[in-house]
Computed example of a mutant assay.
Amino acid sequence: MTANKQSELACWIALQRVPGIGPVTYHKLLQQYGSPQYILNNPNQLSGFNEKLVENLRHPDWQQVEQDLLWLEQDDRYILTIDDERYPVLLKEISDPPPLLYVQGEVSLLNDWQLAIVGSRNPSASGRNTAYDFAHYLADGGLVVTSGLAMGIDAAAHKGALSCGKTIAVVATGLDRVYPAKHRQLAHDIVKNGVIVSEFPLGTSPKPELFPRRNRIISGLSLGTLVVEAALKSGSLITARMAMEQSREVFAIPGSIHNPLSRGCHQLIRDGAKLVETAQDILEELGALAGLKPQVIQTEEEIESTHEKDGDYQVLLNHLGYDPIAIDRLIENTGLTADAVSSMLLLLELEGEVESLPGGRYVRTGS
């Protein structure tokens, strides 16, 4: 980075760190006065802003800015201003895009086609498996999976995407912190095979009011948002509603009427979200828009061929007929573990080969 560019970036960072300046005020200042350099060099020329803010502008924290620039010196670390050509195009379209993005990992992924997957921090086992399998299937189909590094559905989506593709984690802290702390290894894996991004400066600790702000970035980066499981009052619904406001697609997976974590998805569907039963539904909806290659969507023959190569899948398919059979009977008849049978049934259902029926029963659907 040249000295001039570094000086410009230092001013962008310094302006963000001035107390009282959020994204809206930052953009208002830029629209009226053009550049962070001018604003910081001429605080007395500003009009329409309160005196406390003007006073804060007279005393930027240049020492902290120097530390921020030192953070940049390690590989695969970036601070993007909204004027940077690498700044994600879709995010720039929302009403209040972050003036700055702190990035660690594969920065070019920010402009790849993305699908956000969000949901409960305390999902059911089925919900967690669904998030993982959808993310795996969609990442294998050419989409980057974006989520928030939270417990539950977010983590399952990141892991599913990492199993065969790329993922983006949008966090509500500075990039020098990992929250929750137990996701430190997951965050490390994402940096190696994806990217972590935040609008918040280094040193920012997790606070409840920061997570809704983070959510608009998750939806803003993405072509659409998929909600897997969500209660009626949850951050996932905030993300989905932000996606709607941003004119992005919203998808929701229905569930049992007896499951409280299905109620948020059902409400979204009533509000106009697209009901999703298979990951294929999403690829077909977004494929043309994103320019995904047709061959990434597996044909039934390819799926069947894949299963034939997997002995456990073939054993399960041999015991599945066109008459309903209970999952307990399948476990008994195949000799496979309950976890293995549940996981394989879910994947077969996502691929349209198996249909689930009330009472934990399953039937084959193909010929």
Rank of each mutant, 00 (worst) to 15 (best):
S7L: 15
E8P: 11
C11F: 10
W12V: 03
W12G: 04
W12Y: 10
V24P: 05
K28Y: 12
Y38E: 10
N42W: 13
N44S: 14
F49I: 07
E55H: 08
E55S: 08
R58C: 02
Q63Y: 07
D68F: 03
Q74W: 06
Y78E: 11
E85C: 08
I94W: 01
V107K: 06
S108G: 06
L110C: 11
L110V: 10
N111I: 03
G119Y: 00
A125F: 08
A131F: 00
D133W: 10
L138Y: 02
G148C: 09
A150L: 11
I153M: 02
A155R: 09
S163R: 07
G165A: 11
T167G: 07
A169C: 12
K192N: 12
F200H: 03
P201C: 01
F211W: 06
I218C: 00
G224M: 00
L226E: 00
S236A: 08
A243F: 00
M244Q: 07
M244C: 00
Q246G: 01
S247Q: 13
N259C: 09
G264V: 03
H266S: 12
Q267N: 09
L268S: 05
R270C: 13
G272F: 13
V276D: 05
I282M: 01
E284N: 11
G287D: 06
G287P: 02
A288L: 10
L289E: 14
A290T: 04
E308G: 13
D312W: 11
D312Q: 13
L316V: 09
H319T: 10
Y322M: 13
I325T: 08
R329W: 11
E332R: 14
A338Q: 14
A338Y: 12
D339I: 14
M344L: 04
L345Q: 06
L350M: 07
G359D: 10
G359S: 05
G360Q: 13
